[in-house]
C-alpha cells in the first residue's frame, strides 16, 4: 500500500512541520517515505502545501497529483485540491477555517474543528497537531505512537518544552477521530 498524502493551508499553520513529523514517523516504522514542499516565489500568509508519500516499497514519484488522503487547513486549500482526491480517499477538513461543506460525495470525510480544540488546549498553534492526530487515527498510515516518538527528533532542542502540548493536541485529535467514526 502506498499512501500519497497532500496537506495544505496558509503559511504559518505548520503545514511543513506536520508533513515532516508524518514522514519521520513513517521512516521510524522502517517504511519508505518522501517529503516534498511546494516551493516557489511565496510570501508570508500565502498558501503552503506539502506532499508526503509513505510506502512499503521504494517511492516512485515524490510528487502527489492525485492524493489518497487530503488534509485541508483553510478554505482556499479545499477549493484548490478537493477535486484531486482519489475516489474513496480520506478528506480531513479543519472546519474552524473552512466555512463550506465539501462537494465530493465519493470520499471519506473527517471534520475537525482544530482551531477551537487547540484553543481549549491553550495554544492555537497546535491546531496542526490536532488535525494530524485525527488523520493518523482515521487513516492508520502510521501509529500515533510513532508520531509522538518523532516529536523530539524533529523539534529542535530549545523547543522540547512544547512537546507536552503537542502530544495533548495529537491525542485530542485522535480521540475525536475514533469517537466520530
Amino acid at each position: 500500500m502506498t499512501h500519497e498524502i497532500l496537506m495544505a493551508g496558509f503559511g504559518g499553520q505548520g503545514i511543513m512541520f506536520m508533513g515532516t513529523l508524518l514522514a519521520h514517523a513513517g521512516m521510524m516504522e522502517d517504511k519508505e517515505v518522501t517529503w516534498m514542499p511546494s516551493y516557489g516565489p511565496e510570501m508570508r500568509g500565502g498558501t503552503a502545501n506539502c506532499s508526503v508519500v509513505i510506502s512499503h516499497e521504494p517511492v516512485a514519484s515524490p510528487l502527489v497529483s492525485e492524493p489518497t488522503a487530503l488534509i485541508v487547513m483553510n478554505r482556499p486549500s479545499l477549493e484548490r485540491f478537493e477535486g484531486t482526491l482519489r475516489p474513496g480517499g480520506l478528506l480531513v477538513v479543519n472546519t474552524s477555517l473552512v466555512d463550506r461543506r465539501p462537494e465530493r460525495q465519493d470520499v471519506r470525510l473527517l471534520e475537525v474543528p482544530a482551531n477551537e480544540m487547540a484553543d481549549r488546549l491553550g495554544s492555537l498553534r497546535v491546531a496542526n497537531m490536532v488535525v494530524l492526530g485525527a488523520f493518523v487515527q482515521a487513516s492508520r498510515v502510521v501509529t500515533l505512537h510513532s508520531i509522538k516518538q518523532a516529536l523530539p527528533e524533529v523539534l529542535p532542542q530549545h523547543r522540547h518544552g512544547l512537546i507536552e502540548v503537542n502530544v495533548k493536541a495529537l491525542e485530542a485529535g485522535a480521540a475525536l477521530a475514533s469517537g466520530g467514526q
Binding site: A23, M36, P62
Partner: peptide
C-alpha cells in the same frame, strides 16, 4: 533540480 534539492528522503 529543485525537487531533488528541496525534497526529504531517508
Amino acid at each position: 533540480d529543485g525537487i531533488l534539492g528541496q525534497m526529504m528522503e531517508p
